[in-house]
Design a protein around this nucleic acid. Sequence first.
DNA 1: TAGGCCATCTGGTCCT
DNA 2: AGGACCAGATGGCCTA
Length: 159
Amino acid sequence: MNAEMQERLVNSTIHLVNDMNLMELPQKYALVPKQQVDSPFGLNNQTRRSDSPWGGDLENGVRTAEVSTEHLVMGAPRYCSRGTHGPSNKSKRRRIITVVQRQAANVRERKRMFSLNEAFDELRRKVPTFAYEKRLSRIETLRLAIIYISFMTDLLENT
DNA sequence: TAGGCCATCTGGTCCT
DNA sequence: AGGACCAGATGGCCTA
């Protein structure tokens, strides 16, 4: 890619980012710079409940109780989400898991979300954000990436 | 204070 | 059977 091409790309990208608030996205989804949102694990000021990604759990629970909504008191009060009125009514036996298994599942879920956030961070670094002082939220990142990819595609096709 | 964003927990579903 | 994935619910933090 020669210098002229690079300059054109950069200029176009800057325009893309500057125009983000004015184009395409529905008004309610406009990418207005918002408050600084934290990175999941301490990149920013907003520290979350747990300092480490998945620390402080799986505490060798010896209890083996049936995990059925009302039990397993930990954290926020629980609800009965999709138990009896789920999408498909295939009538199946409830899967009984122990407290230890539930905690292990929680740890896995936190790890999964952590890797998801890592991917978001990586995507943020790939997407031009010159006009932003604030960190992009996840939805902003996705929308900007979509627009950016479309833009680059057009650029390639028209050169 | 309301709204946005996020982390976490949780149960259901799918897949191996 | 168990792990991955998903979506709903909840509460905390932050900003306008």
